[in-house]
Amino acid sequence: MNEQELSQRLTVVGNAVPKGARLADIGSDHAYLPVALMLAGKISYAVCGEVVKGPFHSAQKQVAKSGLNNQIVVRLADGLAAIEAADEIDTITIAGMGGTLIASILEDGKINGQLSGKERLVLQPNVGEQNVRRWLQKEGYEILTESILAENDKIYEVIVAKKTAVKKELSPIEIFFGPHLLAEKNSVFLKKWRQEQQALEKVLGQLQKAKVVPEKKVNEIKQELAWIKEALTC
């Protein structure tokens, strides 16, 4: 297995991992990412964290099959509890989960002392990207780069962040779209938000037909639609 055999989504995540990193891959699912990066000579050490026994055993088998038991440790643990101080982790990847769950994992890791604040975070939420950006801003992380890609009829975003001495405030629009993605507006970004516009317009129409119209939700959707229309026309 090599880096080229990763899915496009995981390849983008892997590209954001620094050379020589000591990596913690949380929710590792077969350990595909750490194994590929280790075989490519990109990382020096890795921890694979899995909270479910099935994927945990799959990750163990993948690491053993690749002959990497001395360089990659697989642990059955919830979130960042997979990380131990002796690991000296400097990069954390969390991919393929909802944004709310990713933010919760990071918050728990911070509270429990597994997240020092010195790590580079490479995060790939399947949905709820705004929740990830809100947590990063609240905790003083700067979003260094963002990527958006389409694979197998799904659109994914990858957010790379590091804590900085000077807190950078994002506007509500930047949290909604992603500051770098909004600045670039590539074809995948435009496709995503055209789809979101159609979906929100449908939901708005249904809400406005309700016997009791939920005004707060209606206004929220109208605001989001106004942002989307502006982003798509500018």
Rank of each mutant, 00 (worst) to 15 (best):
S28L: 06
E119K: 00
N112G: 03
E215Y: 03
L144R: 09
A81K: 14
K211W: 05
Q206E: 15
G14D: 10
E88P: 00
Q130T: 13
K138E: 15
G113Y: 10
N131P: 00
P172M: 03
E196F: 01
D87G: 08
N112M: 04
Q8S: 08
L115S: 06
N131R: 09
I173K: 14
I94Q: 10
Q4M: 09
V203Q: 15
K217S: 07
N131T: 00
V160S: 04
W193C: 02
A36F: 10
K42I: 02
V47L: 09
V73I: 14
Q114S: 13
N131E: 14
K216L: 12
L115W: 04
R22W: 12
D87C: 05
G109C: 01
V63P: 03
Q137Y: 00
G98D: 12
V212W: 08
G49S: 10
A77Y: 13
N69M: 10
S58C: 03
K61L: 12
Q130R: 14
V127C: 10
A64K: 14
G96I: 05
Q71V: 01
I92T: 03
R9L: 01
V160T: 15
E50L: 07
F189S: 02
V132I: 09
H30F: 08
L182S: 04
G113T: 10
A199V: 01
V166D: 12
V132P: 03
G98T: 06
F176E: 07
E139Y: 09
P55F: 12
I173R: 12
M1C: 02
I26L: 08
A226F: 11
S58N: 15
I175A: 01
A226H: 11
W135I: 00
I111K: 15
R133E: 11
V35L: 05
G41P: 11
G113F: 11
A183E: 15
L232M: 02
L136F: 11
K191T: 14
L101V: 08
E50M: 02
A210G: 00
E119P: 05
S104A: 13
T100G: 06
A86F: 04
